[in-house]
């Protein structure tokens, strides 16, 4: 392997070194900042059949449901809105407004409507992600290369064929941007929801509970698990995009 492959590890090593330094110099109370190996041990123990592993998969499950619901609704609606610019312009402000509203502000409303169950957490996350996906899909469709649409038209494609054969594929790279941003947002919302809305499981609950019980290695382990999940989801979508949208950026 080439030397460049290992470059990202330099930052990781630096972070661990800083952590050791902080522990050694007692910058922070040792109860609040245990040495790295304690947090690492807690993570291994938790993920290998412990509570942390269970909570991790609960969060994955909720995020997956949220993004699935969001995609199923937002992609068709985004295409419909994007293919008719006049309609999109008429609802653009509403979409932009709610896209800019912190989804966490919607928790109380969703709680009143859907109760204190899993459904509420999933739906708030889906709501936030759907707007991000919708916005990107609609712009992907609207920004379809005009020449390509004309080329299809001059070859005799009907409006419907132009939509299915050109616009849809043209919008795919932007749709993936929406999906990646959407899944990040969904994860944030799910984790926050798990902390506060009467939860008994999930990574958010794990972080919060560990903090309440002063089980600091567990708390750091849960934080890193959440980080790994976010990074992994983004990577997953990037790999899928590279595989299916091979022409992206070309």
């Amino acid at each position: 392997m080439r030397r460049e492959t290992f470059l990202p590890l330099v930052g990781v090593a630096g972070l661990v070194a800083l952590w050791y330094l902080a522990v050694w110099a007692r910058v922070v109370d040792p109860v609040l900042l245990p040495p790295p190996e304690d947090a690492f041990a807690a993570m291994v123990k938790g993920m290998a059949g412990g509570r942390l592993g269970y909570d991790f998969w609960r969060t994955v499950e909720r995020t997956a449901y949220a993004i699935a619901i969001a995609a199923v609704i937002a992609i068709p609606v985004g295409i419909a809105l994007g293919s008719n610019e006049r309609i999109y312009r008429s609802v653009e402000f509403v979409i932009d407004f709610f896209r800019s509203t912190p989804a966490s502000a919607m928790f109380p409303l969703f709680l009143v409507i859907f109760g204190v169950g899993d459904m509420t957490k999933i739906l708030v996350a889906a709501f936030g992600a759907a707007l991000v996906i919708l916005f990107n899909v609609a712009y992907g469709v609207m920004n379809a290369r005009k020449t390509r649409l004309l080329a299809a038209k001059v070859m005799g494609a009907t409006r419907f064929r132009v939509l299915t054969d050109v616009m849809l594929l043209e919008s795919l790279p932007q749709t993936f941007v929406g999906l990646r941003n959407g899944v990040s947002l969904a994860l944030v919302i799910v984790v926050v929801a798990e902390m506060f809305i009467g939860s008994t499981d999930g990574l958010g609950h794990r972080v919060f509970e560990a903090q309440q019980l002063f089980e600091m290695p567990d708390m750091y382990a849960a934080i890193f698990a959440a980080g790994a999940l976010g990074y992994g989801l983004n990577l997953l979508f990037l790999v899928v995009e590279k595989r299916f949208v091979h022409w992206s950026g070309k």
């Binding site: 005009k146 020449t147 390509r148 004309l150 054969d165 594929l169 795919l172 022409w247």
Partner: peptide, 16 residues
């Protein structure tokens, strides 16, 4: 039946 060739081939062909 007509054929049309655009100046901008990059944006006229289907990259997918």
């Amino acid at each position: 039946k007509i054929g049309y060739v655009f100046q901008n081939y990059r944006e006229a062909l289907f990259p997918w």
